[in-house]
Design a protein around this nucleic acid. Structure first.
Lengths: 151, 151
DNA sequence: CACATAATGTAGCCTCAGCTACACTTTGAT
DNA sequence: ATCAAAGTGTAGCTGAGGCTACATTATGTG
């Protein structure tokens, strides 16, 4: 339809790379969603462990606003991915990898919230939006955020 | 386990609201993911229509980096939600609602990119991260971004 | 110690968003 | 006018992430 045989429209030569670039971006955003849940769980589990010394499926479920069955299923996934350990009826704990991820996620979360607040976003909205935003902030952007806050 | 009948730990009284607030935040982030795909499609379709006058499933698929079958399935969802119209072998078009959404999404995208760049994020990373971030920026935060850029 | 209750775990179902494989239209050259 | 290539559509599969309903295990009173 649009690509006539010989008279291709001008600009077609630079459109193929643009297509690929855009596809890569969308793909990146999609895969970020896949890890976002894991990050949320790990961060929350670290919180609970630090706060009360234990992370139980029911508490996790309540805090995330999902059923306990869903929480348990996701915890299984955490175990599969080597981020957590859990024995039946014994609560959830983080592996070294899980702890590392939790620390990185927490630092990123704080940075994002601080930047939003510095830009004039009310604290409550900043916390709320950061929950979704943080999973899509690259290392590069994170560094820029850090530099911005130190000035 | 943790909640003994009478000797509840201090701070329990303020934890229930906190739990609910956090659950609401996570729920919001989850449902945002659900609309993110639709927003991406609508924005892209508007782009294609503006650029070449037509939006074909194969082009959409290529730009998003998915198979054409996936694109077609999602286009069906757009139709179901009243955002687009499409007749077999005739390309995709936006309804009034779709156009409106596309306009809002595009404006938001630009604003997010501009803010990132203003914060010192390299243009390429800004574009890439914005793709994921934009879907999680609330109206409140958006307004703050606007105010920030005018100063 | 028994037993009710709360927490935990399991099974089975749903929707969404991917995919591949195959079938069917359209289109443009010959 | 034919026919091959490209685009489009359909079917059926997967895994993720939800849910409810039911089964099982711990816990803490009585």
């Amino acid at each position: 339809m649009s690509q006539s045989p010989k008279a291709k429209r001008a600009g077609a030569a630079m459109e193929l790379p643009a297509e690929l670039t855009q596809a890569r971006r969308f793909g990146k955003a999609r895969s970020a969603q896949s890890t976002a849940l894991l990050e949320d769980y790990v961060e929350l589990i670290a919180d609970l462990l630090a706060g009360t010394g234990e992370a139980r499926p029911t508490d996790i479920a309540r805090r995330l606003g999902v059923s306990h069955a869903t929480a348990i299923k996701t915890i299984s996934r955490l175990k599969r991915e080597g981020l957590a350990t859990a024995r039946p009826y014994r609560g959830v704990f983080l592996t070294a990898a899980g702890e590392g991820l939790a620390a990185r996620v927490r630092a990123r979360h704080r940075l994002v919230v601080d930047v939003l607040v510095a830009l004039g976003v009310p604290a409550e909205a900043a916390e709320s939006d950061a929950e979704g935003i943080e999973h899509h902030v690259s290392e590069t952007t994170l560094r820029a955020f850090g530099r911005f806050l130190n000035s």
